[in-house]
Design a protein around this nucleic acid. Structure first.
Lengths: 248, 248
DNA sequence: TAGTGGTCTAGACCACTCC
DNA sequence: GAGTGGTCTAGACCACTAA
């Protein structure tokens, strides 16, 4: 038995080989070793590099595909998946226009401010309470009708470049701005769904009666290293929301 | 090339072999060929029966395990899974007692009646509108405090045995009664989550203010053959509900 | 100890994409 | 046509369960 090699994470003593190959690939993906546009090495190459058979490589890749990290394309190669947030809970709001076609809602930033981070947000972002933060208030609309109110918090140090951008220059999506101006790439997120009665402010913004039921979605966006980057809370009318699952 | 064999479903011309093996296993499971307590044939046997290698059988079984239909146990065998509804949305209601331990809520049947099935329910159960139906009103409680109101609809013909049971004899769970008295086994279900403001009746039953936000979960319970068996709508206070997902 | 699934190999041929 | 992933084989040994 060979002695365990030294390395930063515990060197994985008796795990199955496909498991170790998967860990190695995961680490390389997290280190941005491959761009989403270029294929990762072929299965034959990976088999040779890791000293295992192709079948074992396939099993490792299989599990990363199942986890949504990689995507395979027959004849083209295997690619790091650019997250498209297809499974986001927002998908279950009825983002349809008058003709029934899907539409991305427009965004209107109502306010951008520099404030101290409250305790609950700081806990989610692993910051100290009161740390400098950037906060956005945003409204999302469909055909000029309000659909969602959003409250977005970012740690100021990593995102201060956003303070120099004119509000009118922001597009409908924020994550491309994080990437281009702050070098921060959102890789995944955790969402929590709850519901509440609309307060006066949210009711006014969403053009509802106070007390109307709202769906509340809280999201912590994570980087490839699973460090929390952004915290946001979004509210929309419950009547517009419908979430379906299969259970066993 | 051998001629396509005759059979009830189209005999699957050029599908991968593991796919055909999976279909065959699926059909046998749906036909109750194996009980959940007994293992299905070993991988070696299945390989021989279907004329494929063990690796191909494993791939077929893999996909059924991923779908939650089978469960494998090293050294024991592979079994048809008895559904435990672990993924039900109800799991996200806070079913906790004063000490924070999980508890199954108690059930109190408020009413049982024979009525004609309304159109919406009939559509979900693939019955004709106005067909004879059994309807239960039920309250679920935790520590004597109401947690959920339920409205349950069943087609009368398959479930008439339930009419002979005293209301006091029903336990906390209905599905065992379906199985024992009506020979009907629930294999899976589809759930839809929405929210609404509490009407007067639901508010009173749940001891809330009228207009308080409610989470509404609609469930269609399906048999092993995916025929709809039961339709139910459950309502609970939104503040007690919290649903979490990981998105990519 | 016998039998099960879990892991792994070292190939093969096929279907597809791209040049 | 060259190169990719998709499917498939016919074995092997290991880890675990149950008797």
């Amino acid at each position: 038995m060979t002695p365990a090699p030294f390395g930063s994470p515990p060197p994985d003593t008796r795990l199955p080989r496909y498991h170790r190959v998967r860990e190695a690939l995961s680490a390389q993906i997290a280190a941005h070793q491959w761009q989403p546009e270029e294929p990762i090495p072929t299965e034959a190459e990976l088999a040779q590099v890791h000293g295992v058979s192709i079948g074992t490589v396939r099993k490792a890749v299989d599990s990363l595909v199942a986890a949504g990290v990689l995507a395979r394309f027959q004849g083209r190669g295997t690619f790091v998946r650019r997250p498209d947030f297809q499974s986001s809970l927002f998908r279950f709001f009825r983002f349809l226009d008058a003709n029934g076609a899907f539409r991305r809602p427009a965004s209107r930033i109502l306010k951008r401010e520099e404030v101290a981070m409250p305790g609950a947000v700081a806990a989610a972002l692993k910051q100290t309470p009161g740390a400098p933060a950037i906060r956005f208030h945003r409204l999302r609309l469909l055909d000029e009708r309000p659909l969602l109110v959003e409250d977005i918090w970012l740690p100021k140090d990593r995102f201060k470049a956003l303070l120099k951008i004119e509000l009118s220059e922001f597009g409908d999506l924020l994550y491309p701005f994080y990437e281009q101006h702050c070098g921060v790439l959102v890789a995944s997120a955790q969402e929590t769904l709850t519901a509440e009665a609309a307060g006066a402010r949210h009711a006014r913004l969403l053009e509802l009666e106070p007390g109307a039921p709202l769906i509340v979605i809280e999201r912590v966006a994570l980087g490839a290293d699973r460090q929390p980057l952004e915290w946001r809370q979004s509210r929309g009318p419950a009547g517009q929301f419908r979430y379906q699952v299969e259970i066993r």
